[in-house]
Design a protein around this nucleic acid. Structure first.
Lengths: 231, 231, 231, 231
DNA sequence: CATGAATGAGACTTCATTCAT
DNA sequence: AATGAATGAAGTCTCATTCAT
């Protein structure tokens, strides 16, 4: 990294510098929390990695917990925003579902297992006091897109109506998270594309209105038959 | 992990009294770890609840971590034993599967959410050093019965062969654990019987050899193959 | 006084050695608090002077504030006990009063100005949270002997009845404390005997039933009444 | 460490705006010190209440202690000035005394208990380093008017000569301060007028030349007798 | 064997104060 | 002159762990 000569940066807007610090701390904080977990993360370590005084961390965040809450919140924010904005609202429920599973897995993999594991485990652990309260709400917002998807799918008659939405949710998120844990534990790589495809193929039939599936197959066969006949 | 530092290994306490002490500590340890999580559990608290000196705990266990490992190991042991011994080996794969899911859920509910949550969250968290290593192996043994079940089911031709066993495992354990987390988080009660029945009904068709649909698809493939051959 | 946070319940140290430690800490604590005041006293310094680890202090006292409360309480205890037990109950109110003032001054002088100043100033300062609550009660118990003395003196008709007891109290304790402050501030020596004598001589006439003067006034009233009747 | 490190002594800020700043800081400083005590007052809080930067405070005062000294000095200045200027020099010692007690109590009550308590407790506490030195001198100037009063009263033969002036001072200021403390502690209201009257009535006879009192009564009786006789 | 006692190591947090801009 | 930013120094408190008895 030879180039990048330190441009004098005349008139560095004071405001900008401060915001940069906040970003630095959040970035490194995310990194360290993901790496060590809540209890093993120390403000000392965070400061050390940025190369600032420990006291500076406290200038921008009122404490370790607040920082952690911000780290987690930001991450949830990213996910929920992506999920909420990217969702193809006009597509069929199946397409939406496929998109959701795929995006979900990709997001986790982009971040690496660290933060993911952190939120899943620490977030659920006892004893962090208010941290739990914050996370419960975040968790709710985090699953909202899926719940919406499922609800509207049911309204459209594309999803079966004989099992509760929350059971459906567990059926979808459960395997996803389990696969991620597996990966975290064993260190095995996970192909998001491939995994998403498999999961969708496996889980969708369970969620879908049975007739839908039959119809889908019949249509496929008819299409093919016609194509063959025409050829 | 051969190392196993030379724990003083005081004369194996074969005395009945000593064994009782160990059992006491393990029992209370399990209780406290389940209640407070690893980091918030203190040796002081464990000793206090038994009514012994803190130092005594260290007479029987070389440290907090070792105790924790024993607590978790014992719990896994119980589960694995129950699952291994109770499994109806002569029954159909479906029956075995039903039994597995049902027993699994029941075991968790008997123990209460405490230890379950502890193992699922803390057990997976980072930073406990060797704890993780131990848990990976435990995890493997813990899922062994299910893997056996799935493998033999496949051999018998009762389970589909086009998806990996590990994916199947995630498909089964994922929803179970997700439902348990939900219960831990919301405090809602969970009817083991009812939940097990629902889960089996939902997941089984996905795992099973889809004979009829498969037959249909085979026919389709043959049709396509012929068409292509004709072209 | 809400919640009474779950004091960590450190193992109750009850043996002789343990009691000695408690005494050591209280003794040195009294010394340091007296010398430096609450805020400037550090647990480090207390430990250092005893020659023990700082952590040991926290084995015996759950925190700096608790230690301080104990130090002050003990001191009040000493004073109140002395005042309550030594008080010559059979003597005249005057004798009791004389004894009280004398003893009071002596006690302060024995302790040296340190703790006295500490209690008078810190005890009254803001911001120590619950410390204040504790002190208010101690203050009440501390002035109780004097109040009793004054009350019984009034009942016996030896003290005037036209001024409130609390005003009398201020009239007695005010000058005593002011003299002590003066001594603290200027470092001047104070002869307890001599000072006590002077104070008693000065204040007593103000408190006592002014029999002679009263008699004179009664005569005057009679004279007036006669004069008016004659008119 | 008396040395008095070379405070940058920025060009004496003679501008009106600068003076306003100093006044603002002193005003708010007085407020906060009175409210929180010395140790609990932070420069941050002072700056916050004024709406300026913390660093600005240090532009005008070389540190927290210096500011505190100024706050206390100013307050003493006010009191001493008021006492010195308002004193009715031509009146009898009794009148002067009455005026002094009354004014004194009123001043405290005007300021509220805050600063009063602050000066009395913190001002006397240890550990503020040079603060104490400053206060001793202030204390001297503060009691000067009373001492003058007492001295001249004695010269005029209106006050007894058998007790030291400093004892008299304690006899006067002690009860006043004790009453104020009582008020601070209990939160009870205090009627300055009424309290001053009572105090004067109680303490004056003790200070006065005994003959003076007798003379006073005799004169009263004579006046009455004459009046009655004449009627 | 059991334990009372002690503690080293380190965590989080606060705040007066400095300095470049 | 004013301040945004940064920090050194210090303080309280926790806890797993050791060791002599």
């Amino acid at each position: 990294m030879p180039a990048a000569k330190p441009v004098p940066q005349r008139r560095a807007p004071a405001r900008a510098k401060s915001e940069q610090r906040v970003r630095d701390i959040l970035r490194v904080g995310r990194e360290v929390f993901a790496e060590l977990g809540y209890e093993h993360t120390t403000t000392t370590e965070i400061a050390r990695r940025i190369g600032i005084s420990e006291a500076t961390v406290f200038t921008y965040f009122s404490g370790k917990r607040e920082l952690c809450v911000r780290v987690i919140s930001d991450w949830y924010e990213e996910i929920t925003t992506t999920l909420a904005e990217g969702m193809p609202r006009e597509a069929t429920t199946f397409e939406q579902f496929r998109w959701f599973v795929h995006t979900h897995l990709s997001l986790f993999l982009v971040e690496g297992t660290g933060l993911c594991a952190f939120v899943l485990s620490e977030g659920r652990a006892k004893g962090h006091g208010e941290l739990v309260d914050v996370l419960v709400e975040l968790q709710r917002r985090y699953t909202a897109p899926l719940m919406d998807l499922l609800a509207s799918g049911r309204e459209r008659g594309e999803l079966r109506g004989d099992i509760s939405l929350s059971l459906m949710r567990s059926l979808v998120l459960g395997p996803i998270e389990h696969l991620l844990w597996e990966r975290v534990g064993t260190g095995k790589k996970l192909d998001a594309e491939e995994t998403a495809r498999s999961l969708v193929a496996l889980v969708w039939p369970t969620l879908a209105q049975p007739e839908q599936e039959l119809a889908r197959l019949r249509e496929l066969r008819r299409t093919l038959a016609q194509a063959l006949a025409g050829a």
